[in-house]
Design a protein around this nucleic acid. Structure first.
Length: 228
DNA sequence: CCCCCCCC
């Protein structure tokens, strides 16, 4: 197994990895990890899990673990940790499903090697991010299978803004934020949707969104300093 | 190889 230093030298940014190739090393930071989701249709049955990863340039990419890879890779991809991915495969995104990257996503093969890195990537900025301070967390609303939870946030101009968390953002992240709300955490939202309801500007999560809690990025530090 | 993309 190559060392951390050797792997770092071989690393390519996602933007430079040749498309549809499977001989490369990237280093990514985990911004989102779904739970294990079972599926069943006419052709296939199994489980999958999706990840959203970001590299040092701020390029985000989705990765899907299918079936045996869910179990095989279960000790990897903790939130807010960095990993080397060696010899994964870059596949074209399936237009039927949402993906955070327009063209490609990562698939895992039997030849793919994952190695945790001891140093986090030094990303200062994620593409499409909104950095705010948490003000209030409202309660979870369940309607049928739908789950949503509204939170109120602010920026340094005191623009109070409503963000609606959907699905597992409402359940998992929402519950975590409920517990942390008095600490006034800084939140980084990536790839969210802007909406106008009754003349009010608001934000909603979508399935490709990610939420970073107290991210170690410049904008978060500036906002924290403003608040203190 | 794939579930969700929504609401007052």
């Amino acid at each position: 197994m190559a060392t951390e230093v050797e792997l770092s030298k071989q690393c390519l940014p996602i933007s430079k990895v040749p498309k549809y190739s499977s001989d490369w090393v990237i280093k990514v930071f985990v911004v989102r990890r779904s739970k294990v989701i079972p599926y069943k249709n006419q052709r296939n049955e199994g489980v999958f899990k999706t990840l959203i990863l970001v590299d040092e340039e701020g390029t985000k990419i989705q990765a899907t673990l299918f079936n045996k890879h869910v179990e095989k890779r279960k000790d990897f991809f903790e939130l807010s940790r960095s990993y080397f991915i060696i010899n994964g495969r870059l596949d074209r995104v399936n237009p039927n499903y949402s993906s955070v990257h327009k063209e490609v996503e990562i698939a895992f093969t039997d030849n793919t090697i994952i190695k945790e890195s001891k140093t986090n990537i030094s990303t200062q900025e994620f593409s499409n991010d909104v950095v705010v301070i948490l003000v209030t967390v409202k309660s979870l609303i369940e309607e049928g299978r739908s789950r949503r939870r509204e939170i109120i946030v602010t920026n340094e101009r005191y623009d109070l803004t409503s963000i609606t968390l959907w699905g597992d953002f409402a359940e998992n992240d929402g519950e975590l934020l409920e517990k942390m709300k008095y600490d006034k955490p800084i939140l980084g939202f990536c790839d969210v949707r802007v909406s106008i309801y009754k003349g009010n500007f608001g934000i909603s999560t979508i399935p490709v969104s990610s939420v970073l809690i107290n991210p170690t990025i410049q904008k978060a530090t500036e906002l924290r300093n403003w608040y203190l």
